[in-house]
Design a protein around this nucleic acid. Structure first.
Length: 561
DNA sequence: GCCGTTTTCGGCCCGACTGTTTTCAGTCG
């Protein structure tokens, strides 16, 4: 083992000791040993133990640890700390601006254990609530984590979409008159993107020659049909090269996922349909099918619907009539309630459902019963001046560990609607998660089930749930299922929308906005919803104000009293 | 954990910089 490795081990040991709240002078001595060793002119493995003992800053314990590393290749003291540290906490040490003390605070105070959760806590403005943290620290941490994530090889659609569209335009200009189109995952608006894929009607050599001129891109792989380019510190780009007369065919084939193509070719007629096609529309026409939008070219469902002439008219962003699920300064939001409402009205929306956090969400400044009453007074006053725009009184009530909601029935009854979500103790078996969720769904005051699995895409898996049973329970209890539109959540997953629609369960595309800026996330929620075949009729946030009022009255009459 | 003397137990603490404070805590090179 060389000096650098030994020094690194001591450095990490020191940080972990600080994170775990060990005596800071002890931790410091390992840090200074690390510093000293890194600068030693001679290798420790070639130095006699008694000579090592004479080095300033290395005492008997450190020397013993050095000998252990030299003899066994391990440092048991360090390994013991690693075992009791979640991997996400170790990863936080890679984030600029975060040292042991801050990480310990984040871990202990926020109960955040992964970078994904930490990023989300920044989005929700929760870091600034911690002592010793301010706006700048939160901004730095957020930026730092995003940078870290951007160096990984998978991306959220929202992180990639703009860049992909700009790339498409740029290539169209560079390679004209060749045809260029986005295809694959991006064209299907998948929620997670591995590669930006494009079809280009030009020869590989020409594409390579042109793209080599862009300094940001490096060619990493060439196959018969495609080239893979790596953008510096960014996503990979795959380019399918084809003849101009094969453009429609290639676009069709590369847009769809494998299961869709398999279904499409179930009778072995695909080749005949594709060859010589001048457009995708012509392919569908020749196949006797209505045009299936690229976003629905996953699996076989859309093809079955198309064969029966039952393709739905998909919801689109302009079908959103109000903001459901939002947070203001009353809890952990950035903007005041008045600002949130005024902005929603100015955007042409008909209503705002304000759902600040409930009292157990202490980390998010959740509302005490007194503060709920004060907020309701303010809502009533604002509604007088904003009418016909309306603020609906809501709350994002924590589903507690036993499945009960965070307030008594008397308090829950004062809201127009209640969004019930799990925020704490996310590590559960499926059995526990199901019992907890089902109890919350059966609560007559629960109107909407918020972010069903608690997942954070690319960074945290949700707790395990039996989707089918949850959907069945929502159907039985007339509970709306949220499609949380935050691009890192998109929870419930769109893959379960067909089943929910079959069971006649309403969906609600909700931004979970913690600022006015957050409203724009409904766009991503809508894209995900389209993949699952959602229509505006089945989306609660597409209801007009009056339709929502009627729905809530009827639901209340049926479920309560 | 290390050090060292007024010497075996009590104090130790890179300095510059940032950010959050209103005199300091934490991070980083």
């Amino acid at each position: 083992m060389d000096n650098y490795t030994i020094a690194d081990n001591f450095s990490l040991l020191s940080k972990l000791m600080d994170i775990h709240g060990e005596d800071s002078f002890k931790a410091k001595s390992f840090a200074s040993a690390s510093f000293t060793i890194e600068k030693l002119p001679a290798q420790l493995k070639e130095t006699a133990p008694e000579d090592i003992a004479r080095i300033k800053g290395i005492g008997s314990s450190t020397n013993k640890a050095i000998q252990e590393m030299l003899q066994t290749g391990h440092l048991s003291l360090l390994e013991n700390f690693i075992i009791k540290t979640p991997p996400g906490i170790l990863e936080m040490l890679k984030i600029k601006g975060l040292g042991p003390k801050k990480i310990a605070t984040i871990w202990k105070e926020l109960e955040v254990e992964t970078l994904g959760e930490l990023l989300y806590a920044c989005d929700e403005n929760r870091l600034t609530l911690l002592k010793g943290f301010g706006q700048k620290t939160q901004d730095n941490v957020k930026q730092s984590i995003e940078f870290y994530f951007s160096n990984r090889d998978r991306f959220l659609y929202a992180e990639i979409a703009t860049m992909a569209q700009e790339l498409e335009k740029r290539l169209q200009q560079m390679l004209a008159p060749a045809l260029v189109s986005l295809t694959g995952q991006v064209r299907r608006t998948e929620i997670i993107i591995d590669e930006v894929e494009l079809v280009v009607s030009a020869a590989p050599a020409i594409i390579e020659q042109q793209l080599s001129a862009i300094p940001d891109f490096t060619l990493v792989e060439t196959t018969d049909h495609s080239q893979l380019w790596q953008h510096q510190q960014h996503v990979k780009m795959r380019i399918y090269s084809c003849l101009p007369e094969d453009f429609a065919k290639t676009l069709f084939i590369t847009t769809a996922d494998a299961a869709f193509l398999e279904h499409f070719d179930a009778d072995g007629q695909a080749a005949a349909l594709l060859n010589g096609a001048t457009s995708e529309a012509a392919i569908f026409e020749k196949a006797g099918l209505d045009m299936i939008e690229p976003c629905m070219r996953n699996g076989g469902l859309a093809l079955d619907l198309a064969k029966r002439k039952q393709l739905p008219t998909l919801i689109s962003p302009e079908d959103i009539k109000g903001i459901i699920h939002s947070h203001s300064q009353w809890s952990d939001g950035v903007n005041t309630l008045e600002e949130m409402a005024t902005a929603a009205k100015a955007q042409g929306l008909e209503y705002l459902v304000i759902s600040d956090h409930s009292r157990s969400a202490f980390y998010a400044n959740g509302l005490s019963i007194e503060r709920i009453q004060a907020q309701h007074q303010q809502i009533e006053e604002l509604n007088k001046t904003l009418a016909p725009f309306r603020i609906f009184k809501s709350v994002e009530a924590d589903i507690l560990y036993d499945g009960s909601l965070d307030y008594s029935d008397e308090i829950l009854a004062t809201f127009d609607l209640v969004i019930a979500s799990v925020h704490s103790i996310l590590k559960m078996t499926e059995e526990k998660a199901m019992a907890r969720l089902l109890k919350a769904i059966e609560n007559p005051y629960t109107t909407i089930l918020g972010h069903m699995t608690g997942r954070l895409l690319l960074s945290r898996n949700g707790y395990p749930v039996d989707h089918q049973k949850i959907i069945d329970a929502c159907a039985a209890n007339n509970v709306v299922i949220e499609l949380n539109a935050h691009p890192r959540r998109l929870d419930m997953d769109w893959q379960w929308l067909p089943y929910a629609l079959e069971k006649n369960v309403l969906i609600s595309i909700d931004p979970d906005a913690h600022s006015i800026e957050g409203y724009k996330d409904v766009y991503y929620g809508t894209l995900a919803a389209r993949k699952g075949g959602l229509t505006k009729e089945k989306n609660l946030s597409s209801f007009s104000r009056t339709a929502l009022e009627t729905f809530l009255q009827q639901r209340r009459a049926a479920r309560i009293n």
